[in-house]
Nucleic acid binder design. Sequence first.
DNA 1: GTCTATAGTCCGATAGAC
DNA 2: GTCTATCGGACTATAGAC
Lengths: 194, 194
Amino acid sequence: MLAGMPRWESDAQGRLERAALELFEKQGFERTSVAQIARTAGLTERSFYRYFPDKREVLFAGNDLEAHLVAQVEAADPGLTPIEALLTALGTADEVFHSREFLLRRVKVIAASPALAERDLIKLADIADALARALERRGVEPGKARFIIDVAIAISRRATSRWLADPDATFSELVAQATAELRVAVASPAPTVR
Amino acid sequence: MLAGMPRWESDAQGRLERAALELFEKQGFERTSVAQIARTAGLTERSFYRYFPDKREVLFAGNDLEAHLVAQVEAADPGLTPIEALLTALGTADEVFHSREFLLRRVKVIAASPALAERDLIKLADIADALARALERRGVEPGKARFIIDVAIAISRRATSRWLADPDATFSELVAQATAELRVAVASPAPTVR
DNA sequence: GTCTATAGTCCGATAGAC
DNA sequence: GTCTATCGGACTATAGAC
């Protein structure tokens, strides 16, 4: 990788990702063509598809968060309840976060495009699926695993949105805070069954 | 339907929706073209796009559930907490459900296609957005509204998955049951903050 | 209803690294 | 020679513009 002058500019994938993010910021996702991204990165349209199966994926490469969370759940003390294991794992998610500034740019671009918002949601669903399988390996019944994960994701979204806005709080504190908030909210009596 | 020969077969949109569902079941979403759906429904490709902005939308027409839930939240007793209002509204969701058999066919087709799964998720997110605005009108702070809704959606998914499998239980009972399950799950001590 | 840009696939060609 | 990264052309279907 480092020996000698490479025939091609290195890190083609990274160049495509950076070009795409900037073009999407400037012009929006819909009005940016794959050919333009590739050209900006010094490649052809066809080469783009060697790295990404479709145009949206250029913003979603890498499984770092999913791999991290699954590993954390698998490493969790077997004595923990499912929700404890998940929340403890989630509390360490910031270990694989990028800079706040980068995440904010990315969030903004995604929010501006329905097509990207869709892809973002299914990526989250993929993480949920992976976590469900991890919980099932701990002996949790599948339907219940999925439910607990949906709740944990709700907590994590609450924590993440605060983390992006508040430079001081630590992520795991915010997770604990959201969990406390949830406990208060559901402590009230159940709705009446008619 | 009986009075005179109509210029067009009536219910073009319904015919497109039924044709699409059957073709997707038979061949899969990706291997069914818009032209084929239109032809099967006795229309041209161009006419398809008069009814649906894109190919996926043919399975997602109608806002019945969203409209119903928002109306229920708006009609809820102002004295209820946000989560009580939401869960009471959710408990009546089965009023706008189609038959189990139809829902199961639809769920199967959606699950078989990543493109449709994406669209399904963003439709759910749209409902969440509408409910967030409804809660904000009740005076709930936006970030908290979103959090409570994510939790309510988790409860609703748990209830829906059981409802699809169990012909006897009523939906509102299943919502109450899932809520109780959540209370038990989060009653445990918080994860340690490291 | 017609025309067109673009997304995305499939075939292969080329050229350097090893 | 093999392997890998790039490029080129032809093609279909989606979706939007006119």
